[in-house]
Write a protein that binds this DNA or RNA. Structure first.
Length: 575
RNA sequence: UGGGGUGUCGCCAAGCUGGUAAGGCAAUGGACUCUGACUCCAUCAUCCGAGGGUUCGAAUCCUUCCGCCCCAGCCA
């Protein structure tokens, strides 16, 4: 029995692994598997990228192969080093390491240029002097073929000369492009003489101003794959149409065999989440969130900050599986399930009250405080995880005045309500049984405090006479409780399907309550939490200490709530 | 409209050489419980986008139709 961080859920392999199996059997790649994760460094990675990362690195790991991290940096106008750094950090956080150093398409600008000359010499590419508009207008429509450029039949010598002068910087931006001489009548638009190189005087994050012509994706990607010896080039469905030019170019410049093969899979979508870069930018720039790593963002940095462990994201990807069905959407509840599953095994349990109401124990001596030793990991749960290095118990003060959760008390309680209410007895976790004797109200008629008595014989939480209670409540001692900022998150979008309303913007559907900040009362041990610590607030949920925490003053993010059966009962019975 | 894809339970997804619908999430009922959590047990597609056809037998083969996604950036 091995202890993989992600269980092997698949009873059958997905279509990509099946294909690789076949290639292994046939020896098509000499038993090699070499993949690559190829982000463009123009933004932050989000949960959608996690699927591609898990696939590419996962496949390499499973087949004893390699996976490169290659930055597809062929458009200098959009790319920045800042993104390179965040992408590397996020991939590592997810638990993967690329083969060797990270690679860049820009590493191959020289080789790619040579391939372009090769293409020209073979009569398979030409320099087009048409404007962008002219090129677009002559590309044809869905039903009509495109028209050939008047420059399409220039001589090889002229093309070579022009292309060299493009590179030398003799022509202004946008004045000429290098195009593949493919098929203007192809029903596949991608084949209608795609642009291979454009003139663009922009500072490149790595090559600076060394180049003024840059290759397009279609030209750079297949050849970069070939240069790196990639065997399986895995990408998302929207590149299906590009597969034809991918293969055409490899054949046209006659790269050595075996050649990489492109295989597409459906991207990951999750309800309540927007994953389009355009929309994410709007959320940040519109000030709807506090930044790219706002815990409400679907970015890996946001999810990390919220407290989602990398194991959970890997498990999500494994559970969602691979298919070619576009537009499928995983439910957010599956993600939350994965998060809880990981955290349930790893998070220490402590007590905090989010919405406090005061309880006075009438028969408990005034001024007395007793300290209980309480386990951080309940026995039934198997105790602390094997790699746990923190404390396994902590001291918790008990006194005459406590706070409990406002929801845990009802003056007029329905039968199914197992919590505190006048005349009923409940257990304060690991402490005593208490019985409610009544309430004290303020002038407004609101409950100011709850009066109770406790049974000293139940110390530790068990009655020697075998008497049982239906409910166990979490609590904190009011005198020693520490007030801490706690951020409660809900979906950024309440609707599962994020859509712009008629004549509006998708931001119109933002959930106004996606962030609620409360002052929680936490037991003393919790006040010691440091940024990155993840704990369970008993009966409430999992919380992670945010980077905004300072010594003795933690700030907590709610990662995910616990499942709440009572909430369902209450909903059904109408409160 | 041309081309390329895709349609199996509320959601994701097995099923591919035809033999009589895996699994997970969600949901529901129950057991257990010092977290109404966890765990455990049980229920949950006579039906596979629709209609024809082939066959003793089809989600799987043929055929017609319908829905949805992608493509007309000098973005990736």
């Amino acid at each position: 029995m091995t202890h993989e961080s992600v269980p092997d859920l698949a009873e059958s392999k997905d279509f990509i692994r099946e294909r690789i199996d076949k290639d292994m059997e046939s020896g098509a790649y000499g038993g090699r598997v070499h993949t690559r994760f190829p982000p463009e460094p123009n933004g932050y990675l989000h949960i959608g990228h996690a699927k591609s990362i898990c696939l590419n690195f996962g496949v390499a790991r499973e087949y004893g192969g390699k996976c490169n991290l290659r930055f597809d940096d062929t458009n200098p106008a959009k790319e920045e080093t800042e993104y390179v750094d965040s992408i590397k950090r996020d991939v590592r956080w997810l638990g993967f390491e690329w083969d060797g150093t990270e690679l860049y398409a820009s590493d191959y600008f020289g080789k790619l240029y040579d391939y372009a000359e090769t293409l020209i010499k073979k009569g398979k590419a030409y320099v087009d002097d048409q404007t962008a508009d002219e090129i677009r207008d002559s590309r044809g429509t869905l039903t009509e073929p495109g028209r050939e450029s008047p420059y399409r039949n220039r001589s090889v010598d002229e093309n070579l000369d022009l292309f060299r002068r493009m590179r030398a910087g003799e022509f202004p931006d946008g004045s000429r492009v290098l195009r593949a001489k493919a098929d203007m009548a192809s029903p596949n638009f991608v084949m209608r003489d795609p642009v291979l190189y454009r003139i663009r005087r922009a500072h490149h994050h790595r090559t600076g101003n060394a180049w003024c012509i840059y290759p397009m994706y279609d030209f750079a990607h297949c050849l970069s794959d070939s240069i790196e010896g990639i065997t399986h080039s895995l990408c998302t469905l929207e590149f299906e149409n590009n597969r034809e030019i991918y293969n055409w170019l490899l054949e046209a410049v006659d790269v050595p065999r075996p050649r990489p093969q492109q295989t597409e899979f459906a991207r990951l979508n999750i309800t309540h989440m927007v994953l389009s870069k355009r929309k994410l930018i709007q959320l940040v720039q519109g000030g709807h969130v506090r930044g790219w790593d706002d815990p409400r963002m679907p970015t890996l940095s946001g999810l990390r900050r919220k407290g989602y462990p990398p194991e959970a994201l890997r498990e999500l990807c494994a559970r969602v599986g691979m298919s070619r069905a576009a537009g499928t959407v995983a439910e957010y509840s599956l993600l939350e399930f994965c998060v809880r599953e990981v955290l349930n095994k790893t998070a220490p349990r402590l007590m905090a009250v989010l919405d406090p109401i005061k309880v006075v124990i009438e028969n408990y001596p005034e001024g007395q405080t007793e300290w209980f030793d309480m386990p951080c990991f309940p026995e039934e749960g198997g105790g602390a995880p094997v790699n746990w290095s923190g404390p396994v118990t902590r001291k918790v003060p008990f006194s005459r005045e406590l706070y409990i959760e406002r929801d845990d008390f009802k003056e007029d309680a329905p039968k199914k309500f197992f919590r505190l209410s006048p005349g009923r007895e409940v257990r304060l976790r690991y402490a005593y049984f208490i019985t409610c004797t009544g309430v004290v109200k303020n002038e407004a008629g609101e409950i100011a405090e709850i009066r109770c008595t406790y049974d000293p014989a139940t110390k530790g939480g068990d009655a020697p006479d075998g008497r049982k209670v239906k409910g166990t409540l979490h609590w904190v001692s009011s005198g020693e409780a520490v007030p801490v900022e706690t951020r409660l998150y809900e979906h950024l979008f309440a609707a599962g399907e994020v859509e712009a309303p008629e004549g509006g913007n998708f931001t119109d559907t933002l959930n106004p309550d996606s962030l609620r900040v409360v002052t929680a009362r936490v037991e003393p041990a919790l006040a010691e939490a440091k940024a990155g610590d993840v704990v369970q607030f008993e009966r409430l949920g999992y919380f992670r200490a945010d980077e905004d925490s300072t010594p003795g003053k933690p700030v907590f993010n709610r990662t995910v709530t616990l499942k709440d059966a009572w909430a369902k009962i209450e909903q059904k019975t109408g409160g």
